[in-house]
Simulated assay, not measured.
Amino acid sequence: MSVGYAAIADHFRRKILDGELSPGERLPPVRQISQNFGVAGTTTNRAFQVLKREGLIETHPGSGTTVAHLPDRAVTGVARLSRLERTGRGLSPGEGVANRLVRRLSCADPEICDQLSIEPHEEVVVRTMVYRQDDKPVRLGVAVYSLAATSVVPELESAEPGATTRWKGLHKERTGREIHASPERRSARFADARELAAFELPLTVAAPVLMLQVTFHDERGPLAYWEDTLAPGQEQVDT
Rank of each mutant, 00 (worst) to 15 (best):
P161G: 02
F12Q: 02
D18S: 09
L203M: 12
N45Q: 15
T44Y: 00
H171N: 06
P154Q: 01
G90A: 11
G233E: 03
E111Y: 15
G41M: 03
A197H: 08
A108L: 13
H60V: 12
N99D: 14
R53K: 14
A224H: 01
L91A: 05
T76G: 15
R103W: 04
A98K: 14
N36I: 13
R166A: 15
L203W: 07
S187V: 04
R139W: 00
I33S: 00
A206F: 08
A40M: 12
D135Y: 06
E235W: 10
T165L: 14
T59M: 10
P161C: 05
Q49C: 02
I33K: 00
S92A: 12
L196N: 05
N99M: 12
D18E: 11
A207C: 09
T239K: 08
V75K: 13
L101Y: 11
F216P: 04
I16L: 08
H171V: 06
R86G: 03
A68E: 02
L210V: 13
A6G: 02
L84H: 13
A47W: 00
T204I: 10
Y5A: 11
G141R: 07
G169I: 08
V214H: 06
P110N: 04
T59I: 05
R177C: 09
A148L: 07
F37S: 05
T229L: 07
V102P: 02
R13D: 10
L140P: 02
V152Q: 01
S2G: 08
V144N: 02
Y145D: 01
T66W: 09
G77L: 04
E173D: 13
L140T: 02
F216Q: 10
Y131R: 13
S22L: 15
L196M: 11
